[in-house]
Design a binder for these strands. Sequence first.
DNA 1: GAAAAGATTAAA
DNA 2: TTAATCTTTTCC
Length: 270
Amino acid sequence: MKRSHRFKRSIKPKKSLDIKLTNSNNEQDITATTSMTLSSSIKPSSSLIRANSNLKPQIPISSSSLISFEKSSILSQDFFQIDALDLAPRLLGKFLRRDDVVLQITEVEAYRPNDSACHGRFGVTPRTAPVFGPGGHAYVYLCYGLHTMLNIVADKEGVGAAVLIRSCAPVCGLETIQLRRGQKTEKPVLLAGPGKIGQALGISTDWSSHPLYTPGGLEVLDGPEPENILIGPRVGIAYASPEHVNALWRFVVADSPWISAPKNTLGPPP
DNA sequence: GAAAAGATTAAA
DNA sequence: TTAATCTTTTCC
């Protein structure tokens, strides 16, 4: 039964042109092969920023800090090994990179141990095992049978915490993003919402547990800290206990248009 | 084994 | 407002 499902899935036409065959670190050649299809949209990195300079500004950041993206370094694993509640706001402004696509994180949510909304609440299962691993890895799951949701695992091994990436602003690779999303727009509808991030990055659940602190595949790069942030309750977790439904563990970049709904629950931190 | 529900999205 | 779509977890 599972087999037939997989088969059916594999022959389904996909918007994404990217294929990942293994869970290890040596998928580079594969993405390189598939991205040849997109070669027209791939440019030398020095011209990437300029080529996409018509993209709407996301975070109120100085142009000098945007230039710094080219020099911005991949974050080390230490960066992620802290409480998800601390990690979540620190991820705002950071960059997600996969091949020619670079996104800047604008909205996140923290999920923590003893949190009735966290996927780790049932303990270690095949799906949630990465959540209990050391911070700095991806946790990718399928939501509503349709959407791949990207989380960044937080804290030390065994804790069980993660940060959901809910929205991003496009920085590079707009054409690839639009191709994968199936929408030719530059408006926030392109990347505001967690399912859209997974789709824009072209990742599947096979990417779960992928290390984000090593070059290649999917990376998190350092980026400018936003000037102001807003916080609010997390989205879509009505099933959780009131304590966790009301917890203000959603963080967004203030004044960014790249934020998912609802926005009227957001406010300044205390 | 069967059934319900889900950290959502796009279209009507 | 609602259909789409399927894996995970739970219940009998």
